[in-house]
Amino acid sequence: MEGGEAKRSRDEAVRAWRELTGGPEVRDHARPTLVAISGGADSSALLISLASAEGAKIVAAYIGHGLRSADEDRADVEAVTSLCERLGVPMIERHIRVDRSENLESSAREERYRALEQIAVSQGCRYVATGHHSGDQLETMLMALTRGAGLAGLVGMVPSRDLGQGVRLIRPMLGLDRVACEQICNAYGYGPRHDPTNDDLSRRRAWLRAVVAPIIENTPGLGSRLSTTSRLLRDAQEVVAMRVEALVDRAEVSPGSVSIPVGLLEGETGLVVGGVLRRLACTISPEGSDQRGWKHLRPIIAAIQSGDGLERRFDLCGMSVHVVDKHIVIRRSPIAKEL
């Protein structure tokens, strides 16, 4: 028998799913959704919840990354297959190759979302739903905080965003915590799979999850509080982005370089100036844009805001930034061209 707490959590997941897929005016059959499932408590709880929506078209997708042993992958697939059969939900299994020469977690995430987008299109699903919950949101925001991220990073995971080809990524579980996910699974009689990589405390996210997050997760209403903070940060980021775009529009672009008057930026906040520099650098080359952080931007921002009129040159991760004759000129550095 389903417990009261589990039913309330399941109903909350369904309510959030409906809100993210068009609101109450849309019938459930018109919200075709692909659920990304690993066999763990969060994604399994999401699938169990959405499968309870009568008439809804729900498809499950298991993405194998090949990062764990074949036995572990096989056990995950068997558990997911069994759960999908019980729920009467079709399941698609897909295995991807992850570039181990790059940032492993980032590369795996990108390939996973690419695969999910392709499966969603092939299955006629307009939405891809993931089981990220409030604990995952907390970890993401803490990760951003520990690496000194700006507003865009501190925002955390957004409830909904575009994946491409008319498919949207949604996260209906952000208002629920880890315990709620486990309760939903337990009430259904499903034993979630455990990912042993989460036990490796040498990984920063795993350490935050095991040591720091438990202290904060006991905060009453954490999910809604994080959602509020994330929404406020998104609003602040949007204000900054609008100002950045207005200034970028006044830049002069020529083959191989871009320039903007120093006077336009001298009175702006460091956040805006940094945003303008990153955007202008991307017009020359988007390569390395994720490496142009505040460590590299800070001395350039200080020179611009000083108003002393001195000529200066800086390297911005393969880009040359030249402050001269009351202009900021950005072009590829000679070294980057040779590479």
Score class of each variant (00 low, 15 high):
E5A: 13
V14S: 02
V14K: 01
A16F: 08
L20F: 06
D28K: 09
A30S: 14
R31L: 13
L34C: 06
A36L: 13
A45F: 00
L46G: 00
L47T: 01
K57C: 09
I58H: 00
V59F: 07
A60T: 05
R68T: 14
E72V: 08
D73C: 08
A75V: 10
E78Q: 14
E78Y: 11
T81E: 12
C84W: 00
I92M: 06
D99A: 11
R100K: 14
S101Y: 11
S101R: 15
E102W: 09
R109K: 14
E110D: 15
R112W: 01
R114P: 05
Q118S: 14
V121Q: 00
L138K: 02
T140C: 06
M143N: 09
L145S: 10
L145E: 15
L145H: 13
R147F: 07
L151M: 15
V155M: 14
G164W: 10
Q165Y: 10
G175C: 04
D177K: 00
V179L: 15
Q183V: 05
N186S: 13
R193G: 14
H194G: 13
D195G: 07
D195H: 08
N198V: 13
V211Y: 11
A213R: 07
E217I: 12
S227P: 03
S230V: 02
R231P: 02
L232Y: 09
A236I: 04
V240M: 13
A241D: 15
V244Q: 08
R250N: 10
R250G: 06
A251V: 04
E252C: 12
V258R: 00
V262K: 02
L264N: 04
E266K: 06
G267T: 06
G267N: 10
E268D: 11
G275M: 02
V276P: 02
C282F: 11
G288Y: 04
Q291D: 10
H296W: 08
I300H: 03
L310S: 10
E311S: 12
C317E: 12
R331A: 13
P334K: 08
K337D: 13
